[in-house]
């Protein structure tokens, strides 16, 4: 039985898929770790730890290349259809997204050197809290992928709004803070980019969740509204927040 060509093909296709999933898992674990470590380095203003984050980014890139090769080889050799094809494409898409998450973490880590030169700034306190939510989203999106769990994926997808709220809040706080004193501008600008990167990581976790949901159910999660208000924010609007 096991020697018939059909069984053989199916079996090694399953093996290919398993390998793809393992690579995604490994890559995702690395990326989430990069996010956590970059934020820890920012909070501790630890340039060395940040450097370590920057240096381990190529590992994620290498795995992405591996995923891409394997996915293309799988499609070429096995010509998968329907569900199977969706699964391979999902792996391909997710690996690209994870690679971006790694890049944002690296970019955040690169800023530590400059942040460490200035004295710590007050609005900083929002960053670790925002990062905690974002990192949990990444982890849960990967869990949803590992378990093929559309409900968890939908839950991650819904959480993106609260990240946007944090971002808006930090954006306003930083504008006010910069207006107080020009010396605050350099560290505040870095913090603004860091927050934006975190917000993008949250978006990417949402993207993974969307792919997982589609690959599990064959349906798309309906369009979510963006809660990023900072595009409309002008400095005259900013008020309050002087205390603390």
């Amino acid at each position: 039985m096991n020697t018939t060509p059909t069984a053989h093909t199916v079996k090694s296709f399953d093996e290919d898929l398993r390998q793809l999933r393992l690579l995604i898992g490994e890559m995702g674990g690395l990326a989430k770790d990069q996010v956590d470590r970059s934020v820890a380095a920012i909070v501790a203003r630890d340039a060395e730890a940040a450097q370590a984050v920057v240096q381990s980014d190529p590992r994620i890139d290498r795995i992405e290349a591996e995923v891409e090769q394997l996915a293309i080889a799988t499609i070429a050799r096995r010509a998968p259809l329907a569900d199977d094809l969706r699964e391979v494409i999902a792996a391909l898409k997710i690996s690209a997204v994870i690679e971006r998450i790694g890049d944002y973490a690296k970019n955040n880590a690169k800023r530590v050197n400059s942040i460490a030169q200035d004295s710590p700034i007050r609005p900083m306190v929002i960053v670790p809290e925002m990062a905690r939510i974002v990192s949990q989203m990444v982890d849960d999106a990967l869990d949803a992928y590992a378990r093929r769990d559309p409900e968890l994926a939908r839950d991650v997808w819904k959480r993106d709004n609260s990240v946007d709220e944090y971002y808006n809040s930090l954006f306003r706080a930083l504008l006010t803070f910069m207006m107080e004193n020009p010396h605050h501008i350099t560290p505040s600008t870095h913090m603004l980019f860091i927050a934006k990167n975190l917000e993008r990581i949250g978006d990417h976790a949402t993207n993974i969740a969307e792919v997982v949901y589609y690959s599990a159910t064959g349906e798309h999660l309906t369009d979510r509204q963006k809660a990023d208000e900072t595009v409309y924010t002008v400095s005259e609007d900013v008020e309050g927040e002087q205390e603390r």
Binding site: G25, G29, A146
Partner: peptide, 20 residues
């Protein structure tokens, strides 16, 4: 780690690079 991890590969279920 969640009940789903049973029977799964730790590289997918737990993922953390330091664990692996």
């Amino acid at each position: 780690f969640g009940a789903h991890a049973l029977g799964e590969d730790i590289r997918i279920a737990i993922r953390h690079p330091a664990v692996i």
